[in-house]
Design a protein around this nucleic acid. Structure first.
Lengths: 105, 105
DNA sequence: GACGTTGTTCGATGACCGTCGTAGTACGGT
DNA sequence: ACCGTACTACGACGGTCATCGAACAACGTC
């Protein structure tokens, strides 16, 4: 079984989280996950980049601790690590999501 | 009289704000301003970089709309644009400041 | 087993960023 | 008028980032 590395809750670094969310493509992915209550495969996100670039962005989000990725057949399902994020950096995710919505309604 | 360009409240972009706060030196400056209630000159911040680099960071913070800079003699006084930030991106500054404190108590 | 789907990995490339030193500007004080 | 202080502007350098295409790997299906 293939596995993917995820940082533990205490290992999340604010640098990495803010850097990850500063990119518009990654923020779009993260905000889509905030909105939907169920996991989503990578291909279901409509991002204006190629497959390899999207793969890179998912990896950055995962290594920052923002998403959790699990293999599911040929797909990878992406879930927001909301509990971990809220515990480590309270209010941050909500604020970013709200800000994104205010700017791009 | 010398003047400095500041973005209007509506012109602030989330990209620029998150990008600015992703850098540790700039986040240190911003958090120092959150803590202190009065304006502070550039030289009063103890940052581990040279003058020119610090000047660059202050410019990034100003152009993102995070700080307001005004000339005062030979110095430049820096003030947090808290009202504008809270109006444009509610809760964001507080969340980042709190996260910074949780990580670096 | 062959094929399509889904994503990763590996260079390569161009752009941007943080950093610095040097030179220059503006201002206040002597 | 001169000097020191506070900061900016400019050019340069190295590192990192986003992006891409091509090749590869894993899985399900026919």
């Amino acid at each position: 079984m293939r596995t993917l590395d995820h940082p533990a809750r205490e290992q999340m670094r604010l640098d990495a989280v803010l850097m990850a969310l500063a990119d518009p493509v990654r923020r779009h992915i993260a905000c889509r996950l905030v909105e939907s209550d169920h996991d989503q495969a990578c291909f279901s996100f409509e991002v204006p980049v190629t497959k390899s670039t999207a793969s890179h962005h998912f990896r950055v989000l995962r290594e920052a601790g923002i998403i959790r990725q699990t293999y599911e057949g040929t797909s990878i399902m992406n879930a927001l690590r909301r509990e971990d994020l809220d515990a480590r950096f309270p209010g941050l995710l909500d604020a970013v999501f709200r800000a994104q919505h205010l700017q791009h309604p």
